[in-house]
């Protein structure tokens, strides 16, 4: 089981974090990484538009006072998984619009669980860090350490 790398893309399409967990990957310049993240962001937005319009739920008028259905339920989420013979890319978008991209081997199981755990680490060590400004590149030592611990235990 191999996890190749992790990207975090901010809601405006900027790459705020990238990390390689596996040696021997082709080297890219930081500019290339930014372009990759930007193109993915655009592609993700297009795939969102491509989704068929969800059927409008029939609102039972008789039940007055029932809580309004969540506006997120029928919303198309865009590209989620991209699989090739060499890797599998899983995308997880949070409700706040941040995208987590995890590149793994195609056979890797439970990627969605892993990605949620990474989101948890992000919520803990990035969002609860007073020295982090949102939308800026993530430079948090404890987040790096947490990721290392998590990915190494898994592989």
């Amino acid at each position: 089981m191999v996890v190749f790398c992790l990207f975090i893309i901010s809601k405006s399409g900027g790459l705020i974090y990238n990390r390689e967990f596996h040696a021997g990957m082709s080297k890219l310049t930081s500019n290339d990484y930014l372009m990759l993240a930007g193109s993915f962001h655009g592609m993700h937005a297009i795939t969102k538009q491509l989704c068929p319009v969800p059927p409008t739920p029939v609102t039972p008028l008789s039940v007055a006072g029932a809580p309004a259905p969540s506006p997120f339920i029928g919303r198309p989420s865009g590209l989620e998984v991209l699989e090739s013979s060499h890797f599998r890319m899983q995308c997880f978008q949070t409700l706040t619009g941040i995208k987590f991209l995890l590149f793994t081997e195609p056979q890797q199981p439970n990627v969605d669980v892993m990605i949620r755990r990474i989101y948890e680490l992000y919520a803990d060590y990035v969002m609860k860090n007073p020295f982090y400004t949102v939308e800026m590149p993530i430079r948090c030592e404890k987040f790096d350490r947490g990721l290392d611990g998590f990915v190494k235990v898994r592989s």
């Binding site: 803990d124 060590y125 609860k128 860090n129 007073p130 020295f131 430079r139 404890k142 987040f143």
Partner: peptide, 9 residues
């Protein structure tokens, strides 16, 4: 617990 101090600090 959740705080990483930046290098300049």
């Amino acid at each position: 617990q959740y705080i990483s101090t930046p290098r300049e600090m």
